[in-house]
Structures are given as structure tokens and as C-alpha cells.
Design a protein around this nucleic acid. Structure first.
Lengths: 194, 194
DNA sequence: ACAGAACGCTACGAGACCGTATCGGCGGTA
DNA sequence: TACCGCCGATACGGTCTCGTAGCGTTCTGT
């Protein structure tokens, strides 16, 4: 990652992407307008269209640009790794802009194939982190070999996503731990948990 | 419920509400327009405004009108009641129109207080069914008295909602049973489940 | 049958938004 | 310094949507 001085063009482009992400987080995809992006970013509407072919393309790029990848620990403990995984995912996904735009994004994704792919890729990636943790545990023998990994991830991620998106409550570390412990109680070898 | 012959006015009103609910389910709250409602319903736009003050009011009423209440069994078995509860809720909520409009509704609810209240009331009602089942089980002694009811409902509802709204997969009876069994494994008295 | 209420149709003004054209100005480079 | 590329500002045409007005038509109860 060499830090080059950004050109004028790059600065404008970045300002536009930032303003777009902010706006999508605030008012949703549908209510985000090019004129307002121009106001917020200080970049002229004409210039925006020099960089992005349409509003849809811009939104996709802006959302894509603000999805980043959390770091998941590998401590050798299934419980700890899962908590790390879901805490990280939660913090990355649900605090700040990305969290605020998720509902609007998923809604818009129902009708925009490009956004649909983006949201699905995002979801799949989140799940993959958990799947990796689980598969490591299977290898270690901490989980039975025939465990339904897909179901397990859903049992873990579901309550957290539901808490955030539907109930609109904060996903605390306590909740993450409670969810992990409850679900593991079904599968895991008798743990030294408590 | 005496079935009276609907007046002309009532027929128009109902047609409008129906078309609105259809449209919201198809294209979402934001993209639903009065003109299209007029086309679909066969009711003139002028008449729509004679019945409903604004688009927002109409949408709220239309959505409200298509939320109905599932019947939850009371079999005396915690597992069976929970499965009945969540199967019923799932079928009522996530098949058909209501299921298709949930995402758009929750998104719009972030910015429309009236819709927000509606969605919250809907969510709370769904949860209350499960809470009732759980509290009956506590009274029977099938669950410890100090069980965290709120957490328990979240653990049960979360994976199902997540499957439907985020993963966009069908919520099968098998999934409901798997979720219930997994979560109960943590709390319940050793069951005769399998 | 008749009067009043309710509806349908067409047209309209106002505002929001999209995307483009035009032109003047600033900024990096030879 | 002179130039070319990129940006900013303004304005515009076109479309969509809301909500209303005017007027003729149809229904409903008496």
C-alpha cells in the first residue's frame, strides 16, 4: 500500500464515494439523490457523472468501498473463536454507516441485481468466517464430524442479526457470548465453560 | 361478524387497500405510487384521495389490514407449542404478501414514525406468542423459573427471521424443529425428543 | 322516479430528480 | 509562461409523482 499523493481527480472521486455512503446510511438507497451527493461532497454534479455512469453504479461502488474485513482470531478454542468472529463481524457490520444502510440495502437488492450480488457476497463472506472457525473445530474434534455447519452458522448469526435489524437493539458482547454458549451446548463436548 | 353487503364506497376502499398491499409487496413502499394503485384497483385517483388523506396514511392502513393473527396451540408440550408457534408465525408472516414487504417496511419504518410503530407492534405481537408459550412451560416446571425469556425468544426467532429476510430462503418445518430442539437442549429438562 | 352522494375521467400546477450542455476557471506540466 | 485537462456553476429538457379542480356519470336510498 504505497501512499501516493492523490490527484485532484482521485480526491473528487473519493469525496463523492464518501458522501454517497453517508447519504445511503442516513436516508436509504432510494432517497439518495445525485444533487444531494453533490452538495455534501462539494463535487459538482457534472463531475460526478464524469466519474460514474449512473446513480446505481455509484451506489454499488460506494457501498462496496465501505465493506471491510474483520480479523478473526484462531485461539484453538471454539467458543473463543466464535465469540471473536461474531463480535468482529458485528462491529464491522453493524456499527456506523454499514449498519445503518443494511435494511435499505437488502430492500433495494430485491430489485437491483447488482446490489443483490453485492449483498449476497457480503453475507456469504460473513458466514465463511464462521464456517472456517467451525471446520477448524471439527478437525480438532471439538465438534462431531457430521455437524450441520450451515444450520449452526444460522443458529449463531440469526439471533444477532435479528437483534440488530428487526429489534433495533445493540448487539452486546454479552449477547454474543450467550448465543454462542446456548448453541454450543447442543453440539459441543462437555465444556469447561462455566 | 355479520356479513353485510358492502356499499359502493366500501368496495372501492377495499379495492384500494388490496391493490396497495399488492404493490407494496411487489415494489416496496417507496416505489408504490398512487397512480399505479389507481390502475390496479380500478379506482380513480380522485376517489383514493377521498378515502385517504395521503400516501403514507394509505400505506399504513393497507399494511395494517393484511396483518392477521396466527393460532398457537396449547398442547402442554413445550417443544410442540414452540414449533406450532413459530410455524404459524412463519406462515402468517413470511409467505405471501406480508413476507415480501417486510424488508421494505422495516426500511421505511426507519424514517416514518407511523410505520415504525406499526412494525414494532407487529414484532412485539409475534414475540408475545412465544413468550406466552414459554411462560406456560415455566409454570409447568418444564423450564427453570429464572430463564431469560427475552433471550430465549431471540434465540428462537432470530435464525428463522434471518433465514427468510437475509438469506432469502424458505423457512421449512424442519428448520423450525431444528432451531427449537437446539435451543431447548440448553434449558429444558432432559427431553424424550429423540 | 328522483335527489343527493359517490365515483370516473381528464387535466393541471408544483416540485423533485435525472442526466446533459455550455462555458468559464483553476491546476499541473513542458 | 502557455497550454491542455479536469473541475465548478448554471441552466435546461424530460420524466415522474403528488395532490387538486372541474364536470359528467352512476349508484343508492326513499
Amino acid at each position: 500500500m504505497v501512499e501516493t499523493t492523490p490527484t485532484r481527480s482521485e480526491r473528487a472521486r473519493q469525496a463523492v464515494l464518501d458522501a454517497t455512503a453517508d447519504l445511503v446510511a442516513e436516508v436509504g438507497v432510494e432517497r439518495t439523490t445525485i444533487d444531494e451527493i453533490a452538495n455534501r461532497s462539494g463535487v459538482a454534479k457534472t463531475t460526478i457523472y464524469r466519474h460514474f455512469a449512473s446513480k446505481e453504479v455509484l451506489v454499488v461502488e460506494a457501498v462496496h468501498a465501505c465493506t471491510y474485513i474483520p480479523v478473526v482470531a484462531d485461539t484453538g478454542s471454539l467458543r473463543n473463536d466464535l465469540i471473536s468472529c461474531f463480535s468482529g463481524t458485528t462491529k464491522a457490520s453493524y456499527d456506523g454507516r454499514l449498519g445503518n444502510m443494511m435494511l435499505s440495502l437488502m430492500d433495494a437488492a430485491q430489485r437491483d441485481p447488482e446490489l443483490g450480488r453485492l449483498v449476497r457476497a457480503q453475507t456469504d463472506q460473513r458466514r465463511r468466517f464462521a464456517i472456517n472457525v467451525i471446520e477448524r473445530a471439527v478437525v480438532r474434534g471439538d465438534l462431531p464430524a457430521d455437524v450441520d455447519v450451515d444450520l449452526l452458522v444460522t443458529l449463531l448469526a440469526g439471533p444477532l442479526v435479528y437483534t440488530k435489524l428487526v429489534r433495533r437493539q445493540r448487539v452486546t458482547d454479552e449477547l454474543v457470548a450467550a448465543v454462542v454458549d446456548t448453541v454450543l451446548a447442543r453440539y459441543a463436548v462437555p465444556a469447561t465453560t462455566d
